[in-house]
Every structure is written in structure tokens, then in C-alpha cells.
């Protein structure tokens, strides 16, 4: 009797497990098709031999991965570190960090402003924030070019007002790249931070003021710790695509300062070295993954102690 009941129960449990898997199937198929499969292709390609006119030859090779870190001297064939790759990586990371910092500087007040509007008008402000998403990234970037180029809006305005005698060189500078990046990624910071601020219980701020906190003290001790998850989410959303950014640095920087994304593009284009391009891509993914795991672990740990 008892064992019969137990086996019946096990059967039921198995049926339940099957049912859950079948319910999850559509999602699993989508994830495999559009996320795992392309990644797998990249990983496989990174271990193959480059074809003469691009593409790959199906022959195992570690050259792609080897070239990510090392390079052979053109003349004496000695082995050295691929300094160029490292400095490009460093520049990309720096740009991504600076972009994250700037989107934070502009995004936090923006999100605060929207979250403190009356409920009815918040949707309107959020709508304005998402408007740039309706336009292609390329078009948006070219639009900023139009504003800052030598005979663009700003220079013509300043010249017309007589503030300057000759146009200021703004295009193709690091500042231009940073401006473009900040503009493009700002909404990705605003949205999660807005969500966090909107959830913030403003009675807590009132309690802080009641307990003799200045505005800044309240911001530092009460508001910021409680909206921090939103800020972290925003930073991750901005930092990761900014690290591999390709269009904006190219158009705003004029291709003079190469980023990791441009380097990858180069291997798949003129460089005709797909395995190296694939290896560069996969290494970026790995770096981001490691950074993410580390930061999540750190912030989650901090969360237990203080947040």
C-alpha cells in the first residue's frame, strides 16, 4: 500500500517535471537560437584557420587566440605582447567607464526629476526619454555631428555672435566621442534609476530631515543606498555595450582612436582574419562576464552589510 502510494507520488512528480519543461520549451528554444547558438559559432570560429578572402577554413588552429595576446615581430619574428591590443582594450575600458560616469552625472538628476513629477505627467516625461530610441543609432550620431562639426550649429552660432573668430575643433576629439557615447547611452541609465527612485518611499527622506539630516546627508545616507540597485543596473546596462561600442567612436572619433569594437570590425573586414575577430569578441564577452560576476558578488555582499 505504502510503496504503491510512494511510487504514485513519484510518477506524479515526474509528470509535473515534464509539464514544466514543456512549458519552458518556447523560451528555451528562443534562448538557444538567438543567444547560445551565435556565441557557440563565435567560439568555434575562434579556433579555426582564416580563409584567404575572409571566412574560415575548417582546420583547427590556436593562432586566433594566440594573436589576441601576442604578436610576432615583422622583421625578426620574435614573440612580443600585443601592445596595440592591450592599449585598445585599455582605451575602450576607459571610454566605457567615463561614459558610465557621465551618464550617471546626467542621468541621476534626470531620473530624479521625472520620478518626482506628479504621477500623471511621469508617463509623458518617460516618453520623451525614449524618443531617441525610435531613431537609428547611426542617424542619431550623425545628428550630433551636425551640431558640433566645424561649420555646425554651435560654431556658426558662436561665430555669428562674435564670441570666436575661427571655428572650434570639436569633431574627432576624445570629447566628441564621449559626448556621443553619453548621448546614446543616457536612456539606459535613466530608465533603471527612474524605476528605483519611483519605488523609493519619500517618507524615509522626511524621517531623515526630521532627524536633523541636511539634504546632502539624507541623499548620502538614505536615498542613495536605497536606489543603489537601480544605479548599479544602469551602470551595467551602459558599461557593457559602451565597452564594445563601434559606431559612435568611429563616427565621432573619425577612426583615429580605435576601440575594441573597431578592432573586431577590422578583423572581419579588411583584416580578413575571422578567427582573430571571433577570439577578440569572445575575450570581450569573457571579460565582461568576469567583471559582472565580481561586481555582483561585491555589491550583493555589500548589500547584506549595508544595503
Amino acid at each position: 500500500m505504502l510503496s504503491e502510494a510512494a511510487s504514485g507520488e513519484a510518477l506524479l512528480r515526474r509528470a509535473e517535471t515534464r509539464r514544466r519543461w514543456s512549458l519552458a520549451m518556447p523560451a528555451l528554444i528562443v534562448i538557444s537560437l538567438f543567444s547560445i547558438l551565435p556565441l557557440a559559432v563565435m567560439v568555434v570560429y575562434s579556433f579555426l584557420t582564416p580563409g584567404t578572402y575572409g571566412n574560415v577554413e575548417w582546420q583547427f588552429s590556436l593562432d586566433g587566440w594566440f594573436s589576441v595576446i601576442f604578436e610576432r615581430d615583422l622583421f625578426d619574428d620574435t614573440l612580443g605582447l600585443a601592445d596595440a591590443h592591450l592599449s585598445i582594450l585599455g582605451r575602450s575600458a576607459l571610454l566605457a567607464l567615463a561614459t558610465t560616469a557621465l551618464t550617471m552625472v546626467f542621468g541621476l538628476p534626470t531620473a530624479w526629476f521625472i520620478a518626482t513629477r506628479p504621477v500623471a505627467s511621469r508617463a509623458y516625461w518617460m516618453f520623451l526619454i525614449t524618443v531617441p530610441f525610435w531613431t537609428n543609432l547611426l542617424v542619431r550620431t550623425i545628428a550630433i555631428q551636425e551640431v558640433i562639426r566645424a561649420d555646425g550649429t554651435i560654431n556658426r552660432l558662436l561665430l555669428g555672435l562674435g564670441v570666436i573668430d575661427a571655428p572650434i575643433q570639436m569633431m574627432f576629439t576624445n570629447g566628441a566621442v564621449l559626448l556621443g557615447m553619453t548621448y546614446v547611452y543616457l536612456p539606459l541609465m535613466v530608465l533603471p534609476v527612474y524605476a528605483a527612485i519611483e519605488k523609493f518611499d519619500f517618507r524615509l527622506a522626511e524621517a531623515a530631515y526630521d532627524l536633523h539630516a541636511s539634504r546632502f546627508y539624507c541623499l548620502r545616507r538614505v536615498i542613495f543606498p536605497l536606489i543603489r540597485p537601480g544605479v548599479i543596473a544602469g551602470s551595467i546596462l551602459v558599461f557593457i555595450p559602451a565597452l564594445g561600442a563601434y559606431v559612435t567612436p568611429r563616427l565621432m572619433g573619425g577612426g583615429r582612436a580605435m576601440m575594441w569594437g573597431n578592432l573586431i570590425d577590422l578583423q572581419f573586414g579588411q583584416g580578413r582574419n575571422w578567427p582573430l575577430g571571433a577570439a577578440l569578441s569572445v575575450s570581450l564577452t569573457l571579460l565582461v562576464m568576469i567583471a559582472l560576476v565580481l561586481s555582483v558578488r561585491r555589491f550583493a555582499g555589500g548589500g547584506r552589510a549595508d544595503g
Binding site: 524615509l204 522626511e206 526630521d210 532627524l211 539630516a213 545616507r221
Partner: peptide
């Protein structure tokens, strides 16, 4: 003056002692 709020409005990210210390530290 200090207030005891209807919702208590305790700071959820702080411990009991940190909550109580807040007004003094501020």
C-alpha cells in the same frame, strides 16, 4: 522636535542601532 511616524519610516537598509544613531550622527 522629532517624530514617530505612523508608518514608522525606519530606514530598511540599516540595523536597529544604526536607525537610532541616525539623528545623533546627522
Amino acid at each position: 522636535v522629532n517624530t514617530v511616524f505612523q508608518s514608522y519610516a525606519l530606514f530598511p537598509h540599516m540595523t536597529v542601532a544604526q536607525n537610532v544613531a541616525f539623528g545623533l550622527e546627522a
